[in-house]
Design a protein around this nucleic acid. Structure first.
Length: 483
RNA sequence: GGGGAUGUGGGGUAGCCUGGUAGCCUUUCAGGUUUGGGACCUGACGACCCCGGUUCAAAUCCGGGCAUUCCCA
């Protein structure tokens, strides 16, 4: 085995995605899997800094739409947790319970925070003037997953944002669901460059306690769908259980209408890694990379001092421009540095050596294109523009990947073929209310796939019959394999 | 959900069948020489997943547990 394959990635992304994914997490120093508790991983600085950037962009978008931050306790008393019946039923098997402390209520580690936050909401909301109330928190949550866990993809602890909103009317709450879909579009798609299908889930697959759920499905390179941010119309089920009421303009007491929204940042990172990465390692969008330009000095004894001095100047200029820039001053040789930073997915590398000093230029290496260009020192200010173009290329590529994978199906054999090709089927289906559950079971048994739902942000009209039972179809659904 | 495979220094592995000295590559650390695509020299640190059983003797055989990983549905 050559040194190169020992130190770089030993598998190709399209040949063995699972192994590629595990290896890249380790070698790019995103996570360390050796913590040795099933479903829990250590997130290392490179991963944590990326996650931090993602959090900031997400929170900024939420705040712009009127959400305010909070922090709630990680523990939820059992009595609270049990207040909303269908919520308990849905989550009960997944809860980590703390051992009971004598004389105190038993405590759950939050799997999600409705039952923590809403008891406070009932204290905070009194008048229609308190509405809408739109709060969120940055939180880690705990779920006892029984399926196979995968780092960042399906873990027993994950890092997310959950926003919980209260309104005076149902219409406002439904508008919030649409706003949440827009937020996913603006952040996950426009900024992280992860395209998605907003799927209104079938009745049998909605969030425990919700009237309906719209979840974003993202396609992974192995052809499986992964659920990303989901938004839920809770209507008044929790409001009634937690007694969240307000007096309207006429002095009438009413229950609030609620929604909640949960983007799991650590899981979105899994999609970012999987969607954009290549056989050389990660490719991080310019918008979220902890380092946007890495500067590599190349020198010999004679010009070392001069080179380092010049590179300091360039680094300062970049920092001044608001670019996250760093100099790699380690004692590794240039070639090793190239490989290292390509593995970590830094968008741009600037090389500065004798040639550049002489010509007052820089050599710019572009990660996704694996191409070198000459950049004049006077053109440093173009880096942010180049960063935008960098992200646009990632976005286009991702969209193309997704677009080519949604195939219209009319028959069971179409369906079989499409799923075998690791694609998503778009097809007529009898119903996503309870009536359709039987057909969904057939899909699961015969094709090992799931009915993911209908588009959540616009209506697609079904013309024809259900692909399974052949009765008149009410819906156009999307069917795919999933995580 | 079902099935298979594997646990040996930080990482990758040999040894296991046929019980008896834990070998190799890499990383890390120290010092030195180097610096335009994964450098070299010298030296050092560091391991048999856990619990039980068989045996004079267990990395090796047996049982259980835990963990990792792949495949299928």
């Amino acid at each position: 085995m050559t040194k190169k394959s020992e130190q770089g990635l030993s598998v190709k992304k399209d040949e063995n995605f699972s192994q590629w994914y595990s290896e890249i997490l380790d070698k790019a120093e995103v996570t360390d899997l050796r913590y040795n508790v099933k479903g829990f991983v250590v997130i290392r600085p490179w991963g944590a800094m990326t996650i931090e950037n993602m959090y900031q962009l997400y929170e900024k978008a939420l705040q712009k739409k009127g959400h305010k931050p909070t922090f709630f306790p990680v523990v939820i008393p059992e009595t609270n947790f049990k207040k909303e019946a269908s919520h308990v039923k849905g989550f009960k098997p997944e809860v980590f319970w703390l051992e009971k402390i004598k004389g105190e209520d038993r405590l759950a580690l939050r799997p999600t925070s409705e039952t923590a936050m809403y008891q406070m909401y009932s204290l905070w909301i009194r008048s229609h003037r308190d509405l809408p109330l739109k709060l969120y928190q940055r939180a880690n949550v705990f779920r006892y997953e029984t399926k196979a866990t995968r780092p960042l993809i399906r873990a027993r602890e994950f890092y997310w944002i959950e926003s919980h909103d209260c309104f005076a009317t149902k219409e406002q709450a439904e508008a919030q669901v649409q706003e949440d879909i827009q937020t996913t579009e603006q952040v996950m798609h426009q900024q992280f460059k992860i395209p998605f299908l907003p799927m209104k889930r079938p009745e049998w697959d909605k969030f425990a306690g919700a009237t309906y759920t719209v979840a974003s499905d993202v396609l992974m390179p192995d052809g499986k769908l992964i659920q990303q941010p989901s938004t839920h119309l809770l209507e008044q089920s929790f409001a009634k259980s937690f007694d969240i009421k307000f007096k309207d303009e006429e002095g009438k007491e009413k229950y609030v209408w609620q929604t909640c929204y949960g983007p799991a940042i650590s899981r979105i990172l899994a999609s970012v890694i999987s969607m954009h990465g290549d056989n050389s390692g990660l490719i991080l969008p310019f918008a979220i990379s902890p380092i946007q330009t890495i500067l590599i000095p190349i020198y010999n004894k004679e010009n070392k001092e001069k080179t380092l001095k010049e590179i300091e100047k360039i680094n300062s200029a970049l920092l001044e421009l608001g670019i996250k820039s760093e100099i790699d001053n380690s004692e590794k040789r240039p070639g090793e540095k190239y490989h290292c930073w390509e593995l970590k997915g830094v968008p741009f590398r600037l090389e500065i050596g004798e040639k550049e000093l002489k010509e007052k230029t820089l050599t710019l290496h572009i990660r996704d294109l694996n191409k070198r260009e000459e950049l004049k020192i006077s053109d440093l200010k173009n880096i942010s523009k180049l960063g935008k173009e960098f992200d646009e290329r990632l976005g286009k590529k991702a969209e193309q990947f997704m677009k080519n994978k949604i195939i219209d199906c009319k028959t069971k054999s179409d369906l079989k073929k499409v799923l075998k090709e690791k694609k998503i089927a778009r097809t007529n289906f009898c119903s996503i209310s309870k009536d359709g559950a039987k057909c969904a079971e057939v899909v699961e048994k015969e094709f090992n796939a799931e009915v993911r739902g209908i588009l959540g942000n616009k209506k697609e009209k079904a013309v024809g019959n259900c692909v399974i039972c052949n009765k008149l179809a009410k819906e156009v659904v999307y069917i795919g394999k999933s995580y």
